[in-house]
Computed example of a mutant assay.
Amino acid sequence: MTGVSARILRPDELPARDRGAGARTVPLVTSARGATSFLNGVTSFEPGAAIAHHVHNVAESVVVLQGAAVVDIDGTRTPLRAFDTTFVPAGIPHHFENASAGEPMTIFWTYAGIEATRTLVASGERGRIEAEQPDGAEPVDIVRESARITVKPGRENAFEDAVAAAATLFQRAHGARTFVLERSHEHPLSYRLTVGWESVDDHLSGFRGSPDFARWRALIGDSIEGLPEVEHFEHVLTAF
């Protein structure tokens, strides 16, 4: 993959996962389709269907698209109609039900992280949402390059402009997914550049061996002290 392409996703053309108990889920935006910071999809409920009480490690928002629903959030049950929207922070037990005995109900859900998990309250069973892909697609585990960069005094604005100009170089690189620059509050000449890659090799053998890497270093060369200090990090835990 060179960059991530825009695409149109049609639920009726995508594989669905039978959740059991009358619920059926179609994942839409996933890491395999380019997501880096959220997941979404739709779940349809047959008349009277409900899913098990559960919690997530990230915030979740749900929009009722069709039908009459009931949401149980930590024991408080609330009826919902089309376009009513919920926000449930991480760690709060909840579930949705179809309130109708004769009509279907559909929700559109969004999780605030590709590492989102679901833990069933009754059993404690826990799994990553992305591991539930109905087409067997493997989730993409982003490797984050963290570069600590020290800037020369008085060159802060020039450096920030150079990084902004370089963003397109990274965006078109094979395997590049995210690009974020942060500045230290305590040490204003210290910056951290974080680039998400599909693999360490995409960075070290791919981007670093390309002409765009030389262009990147040329853009920031006059503004920095020494070379960036680079490490690669893999996700371990998202608690909330």
Rank of each mutant, 00 (worst) to 15 (best):
T110C: 00
S100M: 05
R126F: 01
A164F: 03
S146I: 13
A82P: 09
A131Y: 13
D84W: 04
Y111H: 13
E115I: 00
L120P: 02
A131P: 01
E115K: 05
F83W: 15
A165R: 14
F159P: 03
S100P: 10
A137E: 11
E130D: 10
A116M: 04
A112S: 15
R155I: 00
F108K: 04
G124W: 15
A166E: 06
D161P: 01
K152H: 11
G136I: 08
E103S: 10
R148C: 00
E125Q: 13
A137D: 11
F108Q: 10
E115V: 03
V88H: 05
P93A: 00
P139Q: 06
S123W: 08
V143I: 09
S146D: 04
T110K: 12
T85K: 04
V151L: 06
A158L: 08
A112K: 07
V151M: 09
P104A: 01
F87N: 05
P139H: 10
N98Y: 09
E115A: 06
G113A: 05
I107G: 00
P89W: 06
G91R: 14
E160W: 06
E125N: 02
A147P: 10
F87R: 08
S146H: 05
A147M: 04
E97C: 02
I114S: 03
A147Q: 05
A90F: 03
E145F: 07
I107Q: 12
V151K: 07
T86G: 04
E125H: 11
H94T: 08
V88Y: 11
Q133A: 14
D141R: 12
T117G: 10
F159E: 12
A166N: 04
